[in-house]
Nucleic acid binder design. Sequence first.
DNA 1: ATGCCCACTATCCTTTCGTATAGTCGCCTG
DNA 2: CAGGCGACTATACGAAAGGATAGTGGGCAT
Lengths: 204, 204
Amino acid sequence: MKILIADDHDLVRDTLAAFLGREKDFEIDTASDLADALDKINAKPRYHLVLLDYSMPGMNGLEGLAKAKEANEPWPVAIMSGIAPKAIAQEALDAGAIGFLPKTMAANSMINAIRFMSAGETFVPVQFMTAEEPEETNELAKGLSPRELEVLSGLCRGLANKEIARELDLQEVTIKLHVKTLCRKLDAKNRTQAAMIAKEAGLF
Amino acid sequence: MKILIADDHDLVRDTLAAFLGREKDFEIDTASDLADALDKINAKPRYHLVLLDYSMPGMNGLEGLAKAKEANEPWPVAIMSGIAPKAIAQEALDAGAIGFLPKTMAANSMINAIRFMSAGETFVPVQFMTAEEPEETNELAKGLSPRELEVLSGLCRGLANKEIARELDLQEVTIKLHVKTLCRKLDAKNRTQAAMIAKEAGLF
DNA sequence: ATGCCCACTATCCTTTCGTATAGTCGCCTG
DNA sequence: CAGGCGACTATACGAAAGGATAGTGGGCAT
């Protein structure tokens, strides 16, 4: 079974490759970034499974996943991550990943996970699916109406009131009002501060 | 030679242990957090080398290094890190680490590094010492003058031009000028977007 | 039905922002 | 020494932002 491991941490990649390489039927290739991975994938025989590190040069969030997935059709691509924010796991699956492997998982279960995934089964560690999301809405979002959140999103993109108004099909004055209440609720002095507070809280 | 590897990422720890274990004279123990590591160190025979992950439960920056160092006297302790900000390497050495291993280093050079360190030699990859400290100047900061950075800092705190002017003891018009050039250089449409771009880049 | 909150719209007015143009000073380099 | 460049100041003007006040209409609960 041909497997490609792409991770920019040489240490992790090499030792992981060495570890997996001890399985008789595993044939491991490695890449140090997305471009390298795509080159190897396109070099004719596709891999039965491609493992991509989430934070690796070229990945740019989950953009790289799409590219790798397309290149490796019809075989699957999975995402690995060391920092592993729970939300990313779901996003990765939504974006077409066959699985999500946190680096906190045991090395031996990784072998099983790889066999699962190369057989077309989706794999995500239970703790990533069960432990729900205590913070659906980022604390800050509590107390903000849906409209206000939409406006806040505009603020965070540096849009002018007029632009937000067009986007939401409202009058500019209405946006001003929402901006004002947002500043009050977020304890911000102006739109810029409101945007920074939202960003700080991880919103948007 | 007895070596302890402490890392909370099971996957990394196990594969690394397996990899190093292939060296005939290496005897590897592992721990999943600092408390676990200290327990193992205190279980009588000290290790010839202890490898601690920088971001691991209990470490709390470099505090954990001091504890492990004390426990493992007179043998050395080294720090590993995946995120590896350059400044940390120096700090780790200053705090008494025998070496600093970024996870981006090749697995084979790790073996040599371990032999070095267990022999009492300090080890840090050249790229971490050479490029001395041209700051962490965050890419983005390149091309920005010191003044512009000061103004950008004000923007990121949501200050008005007038407030920034007071803070820097300049005229408001001057701030406006800097804001304009900042917007040009950062490819932002306005102050809010400039602030968000700076924040996104991890500045401030 | 009466209030109340929310989302929205409307005017009016002041402050701040953003842009343009022009000029001074000091430093560095060809 | 001339020219370029970075940092700063000055004046002026239109475009946004921000604040105050007032009003409409839809849901929701006592």
